[in-house]
Amino acid sequence: MKVAIIDYGAGNIQSLQFALNRLGVQGLLTADVDQLQTADKVIFPGVGEASSAMRKLNASGLQHLLPTLTQPVLGICLGMQLMCNSTEEGMTQGLGIFDAAVKRFSAKVKVPQMGWNTISNTKGPLFDGIDDKEYMYLVHSYFAPSCSNTIAETNYDGAYSTALQKDNFYGVQFHPEKSSKAGSQLLQNFLSI
């Protein structure tokens, strides 16, 4: 199986590579259009600040390719947020795949949310064999509100989208590569779609 990880200079992907290795898969870090189009699965990672990450994606020219991919695509953390319509962080225009406008957590809670929180109302193959109320590791200051694309929720300052899906596009706010056995199961599920 060919698993491509989108290389646009925004993301700490070493842990993701190791997590894939543990599942017997070698991730290919690439910005090459042919490689991305012919991969069986594509992962869109991302950490850091949204507007600068989006600038890097635009500079790579991949912002037009990404929404046209037809194989399963998984956005992780900031990757998922950039797949939404927009984000308040740096007033950034997103890729418009998921119908959500990403917002900042209110000052009623500590920001960022950092640590292990539960997921609930899970739907679809990404969560096969993963308990509702399973713990996942999250680090983020902005969140996607619940919407028609929501396939799992987490509660922090209210319920929000901890996972999204539209057609072949998937996104998770948590870090499956850092979420112990449950995270590994989710990655395995993605590879099996």
Binding site: Q14, S15, F18, A19, N21, R22, Y137, V139, H175, E177, K178, S179, S180, K181, G183, S184
Partner: peptide
Amino acid sequence: VLKVAEAIDIP
């Protein structure tokens, strides 16, 4: 750090 990242799946 590289070896630790390879061995564990928590932050």
